[in-house]
Write a protein that binds this DNA or RNA. Structure first.
Lengths: 248, 248
DNA sequence: GGAGGGCCTTGATTAAGATCAAGAAGGCGC
DNA sequence: GCGCCTTCTTGATCTTAATCAAGGCCCTCC
């Protein structure tokens, strides 16, 4: 549980005092100062479990850098990833005692944590923060439902294309490049993690990635670096409406 | 958009001023009176679409009686149900302009509606209500993630058993009977709707229901009335941990 | 009563993806 | 460099559920 200096980039603050950046041009307010007091930074190693199902977590947090995953498991060990925490995502269940799924760091993760009790206290007293939390939870719910559509009705190929599109978009938004045309990014997940997210086996993931490569929809440099020559082309493979699209 | 008298049952009020019952022993407060002013009742016919994706809804509501479903659709028409609205469930996206999925009445539905603008106003000013909304949204999120596990990793048989178990449990909780032992309820969904919820085809649903019947896990009286002689036995078919279990 | 239409069941066949199995490509420590 | 380990790829085969197809049940409306 170490404190540390971090480099503040533009994405550190978007529109919300819950984001970890101390000062924000759009939402400077008294609440910010209150949040400062209950805030600390913490890193988790790659592979480290941040919370087990049923854990009493004493903090909520936003991801500053790195990737973590949420997952659920059946009795016999089959696992399904149910969420992906990318930089700027929020984790924790304000108002709830227990974590209801496992949270695991995929890469080294830096979190901006808020002590739970005071955070909840703050939330109860400042409508602005409660409102923002609700907003974020509704976003997560939209994303979860979009994902249900993927899990229930998409083919393996469409699943892979959708995942790549989501990661490409998230990655692009961090870099402030536009979506569309050519894009390029690093896959932050192993084939197995992709399979867990998509409800597939790792072999099927590998085969479909190979197929997309063979057909020129994507290019691979090494196993993890993806180059998308034509984002529209990739989107056509997702099965989604070409406008509208995924919400994550 | 008709007003009407309704019979108040115990479940009409549990712990929340957002529930449609006017007076509540646990949470009587000024907010209740405010809510009264912006509230009206409305019925929807079976099969009627309550909201399309992208609709600007001018109300949020709780289901008083009947069943409605939330669903999403791919370009080519494949659809996936992403939520089930049973009595006491909340619908609408406070703070959001647009519905992000279709809402359809499965049976005749009676809703307790709150005009959106004043409701949001109220929410901004009364932490109690905002807090409760967040709570409900977190519940939905948990349910959605539980469902992702089902869609991604369960077999057809496990999916059917899980759905039956959820409906049985919800039904039992309304009747204040205990979960466990024998249970009995009406399936509020067609085979096709079940298929849409479970990410299966209706033929597969039919076959698996028949199989569970053949093996004595369930008994059928007509096509829709289900009798579960031993709830534990049904639970074993779901693939879930026998304790803990589904969150809906 | 009979026709028509939903809704459901069951059977035969097919296809998508899982499983089983072998080996290749990197990355890392020595 | 070499060996080892993890991760990934590819092939062969099998299984599950989808698809295609036919017919049954039950309700409603003439």
């Amino acid at each position: 549980m170490e404190m540390q200096e971090i480099e503040l980039t533009h994405m550190d603050c978007i529109d919300c005092p819950i984001r970890h950046r101390a000062v924000c041009s759009r939402c400077e307010s008294d609440e910010l100062n209150l949040l400062e007091e209950i805030k600390y930074y913490r890193t988790f190693d790659a592979g480290q479990t941040i919370a087990w199902t049923g854990d009493k977590l004493d903090f909520v947090a936003t991801v500053v850098s790195g990737i973590a995953t949420l997952s659920q498991t059946l009795e016999d060990g089959r696992t399904q990833m149910v969420g992906l925490l990318l930089p700027s995502d929020f984790m924790g269940r304000p108002g709830r005692e227990m974590a209801s799924y496992d949270v695991t760091a995929t890469t080294e993760v830096l979190m901006c944590c808020f002590r739970r009790r005071p955070f909840e206290e703050l939330m109860r007293n400042t409508p602005h923060i409660a409102q923002r939390l609700l907003e974020m939870t509704l976003d997560e719910l939209d994303a979860a439902r979009e994902w249900m559509l993927l899990l229930g009705r998409k083919t393996a190929r469409e699943k892979i294309a959708s995942l790549l599109a989501i990661i490409a978009r998230r990655d692009a938004s961090l870099k402030f490049s536009k979506t569309g045309g050519a894009m390029e990014f690093d896959l932050p997940l192993t084939r197995e993690a992709m399979a867990d997210y998509l409800g597939l086996t790792l072999e099927t993931v590998s085969r479909q990635v190979s197929a997309l490569k063979r057909e020129g929809v994507i290019e691979l440099a090494g196993k993890r670096h993806i180059n998308v020559p034509d984002f529209e082309r990739l989107m056509q493979e997702t099965g989604d409406d070409t406008d509208g699209g995924m919400l994550v």
